[in-house]
């Protein structure tokens, strides 16, 4: 009954979907127009561009993880190797690149922490914890952990 009464769904996957390219207009089957999503759709709106940049922080994350492992490997190779590595890291070009990577990481952190209240709904004694408190707690944790890392690795 239903399928008979309804017009085709208009989804491209639907075999009954009339293609825009179909030159024939049939009296009772209008042709729907579907706009194609451009390949660079994420340039259409600033919000989408920000989204794609956020997604691309996967690359700094990947790089930094490999970097940390690389540093472990260098440390296992003895003091000379480490010294060369440090020299190499001090090169201005590499420092600039690393600053950029760090910016990417920070973008990841900020976007990630800002979205926490969307995924987490916590209740204490029946009362919902407001979003700002959840975000605040995460930023607190971030600052705390960062401080601890600093203290352990660079504080002495």
């Amino acid at each position: 009954m239903k399928s008979q009464a309804r017009i085709p769904t208009g989804r491209i996957s639907d075999p009954g979907y009339p293609r825009a390219s179909n030159p024939e207009y049939t009296r009772h089957h209008p042709r729907w127009y579907r706009r194609r999503m451009p390949i660079f759709w994420w340039l259409r709106k600033l919000a989408y561009t920000k989204f794609i940049l956020r997604e691309l922080t996967s690359q700094p994350v990947m790089y930094v993880t490999l970097f940390l492992l690389g540093k472990m490997w260098v440390l296992s190779r003895g003091p000379e190797a480490y010294e060369t590595f440090i020299q190499w890291l001090s090169h201005p070009a590499l420092l600039a690149f690393h600053a950029l990577v760090l910016a990417g990481l920070l973008f990841h952190t900020v976007t990630w922490l800002n979205l926490t209240p969307k995924a987490l709904v916590l209740r204490v004694a029946g009362r919902k914890i407001p979003g700002w408190a959840i975000v605040g707690a995460h930023y607190g944790a971030w600052l705390g952990l960062s401080g601890a890392i600093f203290w352990i690795l660079a504080g002495r």
């Binding site: 994350v61 930094v64 993880t65 970097f67 940390l68 540093k71 440390l75 003091p79 480490y82 010294e83 440090i86 020299q87 890291l89 001090s90 420092l95 690393h98 600053a99 990577v101 760090l102 990481l105 920070l106 990841h108 952190t109 990630w112 922490l113 995460h138 944790a141 971030w142 952990l145 960062s146 890392i149 600093f150 690795l153 660079a154 504080g155 002495r156």
Partner: peptide, 28 residues
Amino acid sequence: MLTALLLPALFLVTAITAPMGWFGMTGY
């Protein structure tokens, strides 16, 4: 979550401040 909380500080220390010798613990 883990990378958001840990990586910026870890990377800053290991890749920037250590080679620059800005803070302590630069020795092998």
